[in-house]
């Protein structure tokens, strides 16, 4: 009796160190992110206006807006995704659904993808320059930039999409097979809609990486801040614009902040749009 009461008074409730450590780390990370965000909002919000979005950059970007930059960014992303999505989803389907009988080959493909996902973007930039710009003769163009980005995004997209397909319960596949349904029909009607959340995660991660990319684009889509006439023209992406304004253009900081804010807003919009599509797809699929 005595020992137990003395024990409890001397020790008291023990502080839960692991929980405190985790909370501290989480708070620090969130705080860092908030600092950056607040800094950009603080400096950038004043720049943001309809005019900023719709006029051409002038005086090396110090004046004017970012309309040509937005168009170039959009086109680069369009080229990137229109190559990466079909190729990525196709590969994911192959790996998750069709390569089961050949585990050694798919393990090999997966390992290559993981290595590719970890390759620094500057290496992709050099590859894009050597292959798309020079070997294929596409020159410094939005096409070269988009294709280089596609190579970069593919590993992330494929692995996430594959996880999406693996998360689909095997009961669906077994059920479909035992009804004698075609693999294509099963894929289209059952597996693809069920794997949609995974696909969207991959897409969001991929778009995030593509939008934030500078190193891979400097050598491929180039620097030119004019309004592109087609995908064969050179074009400057938002991230390159921010990089250039803050590093090479004295007096360009305010515009850089404005552009950074636009980039962040775009990412938020794209993310919410993607999850909205996933949601809709799933509801639509269930309620028809």
């Amino acid at each position: 009796m005595q020992t137990s009461s003395s024990n409890s008074t001397s020790n008291g409730p023990r502080p839960d160190w692991p929980a405190i450590a985790i909370w501290t780390i989480a708070t620090l990370i969130t705080a860092t992110f908030c600092c950056i965000l607040l800094d950009i909002l603080w400096h950038g919000l004043g720049q943001l206006s309809w005019e900023f979005l719709t006029t051409a950059p002038a005086n090396a970007g110090r004046d004017g807006g970012i309309n040509s930059i937005l168009v170039s960014t959009g086109l680069i992303l369009l080229v990137c995704l229109s190559v990466a999505i079909p190729l990525g989803v196709g590969t994911a389907i192959f790996l998750a659904e069709f390569a089961r009988g050949n585990p050694r080959f798919s393990r090999w493909v997966r390992r290559s993808l993981d290595i590719l996902a970890g390759v620094p973007s500057i290496v992709f930039g050099l590859f894009g320059y050597a292959f798309f710009v020079q070997r294929l003769g596409l020159g410094f163009s939005i096409l070269s930039g988009g294709l280089t980005l596609a190579c970069m995004v593919l590993p992330i997209l494929i692995r996430a999409a594959e996880e999406g397909f693996r998360a689909v319960p095997d009961g669906y596949r077994l059920g479909a097979a035992s009804l004698g349904l075609s693999r294509w029909g099963t894929l289209r009607q059952v597996l693809l809609p069920s794997a949609m959340p995974g696909l969207v995660v991959g897409l969001v991660l991929g778009i995030g990486r593509a939008m934030a990319e500078t190193a891979a684009l400097i050598f491929t889509s180039g620097y030119v801040d004019r309004m592109p006439g087609s995908v064969w023209d050179s074009g400057r992406s938002l991230s390159i614009h921010i990089f250039d304004l803050s590093m090479n253009v004295p007096g360009g900081e305010q515009q850089a902040y404005g552009s950074a804010l636009v980039l962040i807003l775009l990412l938020i919009v794209i993310n919410s749009f993607a999850s909205w599509i996933a949601q809709r797809y799933r509801l639509g699929q269930q309620g028809r």
Binding site: G171, L174, G175, V190
Partner: peptide, 8 residues
């Protein structure tokens, strides 16, 4: 385990 497809 019942395995209806996630459809209507």
């Amino acid at each position: 385990k019942p395995n209806p497809f996630p459809l209507s």
